[in-house]
């Protein structure tokens, strides 16, 4: 479908009715609606794949707070994307427990297989690879990585190759709604 480039006019909201419904349900669960800022940003990101400024403004309107307040929150937390990453977001843990069990080798293997450096996205937009991530709490299965926030442990090169094959066949991010 042909669509104009650039941000859409304010008249066509980015957030779907379903996303707005999710945000309103979240607001009702807290002593004050603004508590739903994080769940609302998650809802926006689930729908859009990232959170552009226009979406932040719409979230702010739903919560009844200022757009700048939502932007302050969205930019503080590492897991909200301001630009869309690849279809699958691969995060390799290189903190101590994983490093002691071969995380650097795993990262190099992925760079080689995907043909991109740490921090890059493949040309076909299928994968973004990153190693600046908190300890994933998967030290018992080190080295570990996450794909779309689902954890994969005891990652040998063989297993990772099979995982990549599976992911290539998936049409969207793992666990995406609808």
């Amino acid at each position: 479908m042909a669509e104009a480039a650039g941000p859409p006019a304010a008249a066509t909201p980015l957030l779907s009715a379903a996303t707005r419904e999710r945000i309103r349900t979240a607001c009702a669960r807290y002593p004050a609606a603004r508590s739903a800022a994080l769940p609302a940003l998650w809802a926006a990101q689930d729908q859009l794949g990232h959170v552009p400024p226009e979406a932040m403004a719409e979230v702010a309107a739903e919560l009844g707070i200022g757009a700048a307040e939502v932007e302050a929150v969205a930019t503080f937390y590492a897991m909200y994307f301001r630009r869309p990453p690849g279809r699958h977001f691969i995060q390799v843990c290189t903190n101590v427990s994983c490093a002691l069990r071969g995380a650097e080798g795993l990262l190099r293997h992925l760079e080689e297989r995907l043909g991109i450096p740490d921090g890059g996205t493949t040309l076909d937009g299928a994968f973004t690879l990153e190693s600046t991530v908190e300890c994933l709490g998967a030290c018992g299965g080190a080295p570990a990585l996450q794909v779309d926030r689902y954890s994969h442990e005891d990652c040998t090169p063989d297993r990772v190759d099979r995982l990549l094959e599976r992911l290539r066949a998936e049409p969207g991010p793992t666990g995406a709604p609808r």
Binding site: S35, P39, V73
Partner: peptide, 27 residues
């Protein structure tokens, strides 16, 4: 019972930062 998902900030484990985060602020 309300499950609240964080968004990638170690500091939100500190109890008062957690409260700010729960109030919809920077943690």
């Amino acid at each position: 019972l309300v499950v609240h998902g964080g968004a990638g900030a170690y500091i939100c484990g500190e109890e008062t930062a957690l409260l700010d985060s729960l109030e919809g602020l920077r943690g």
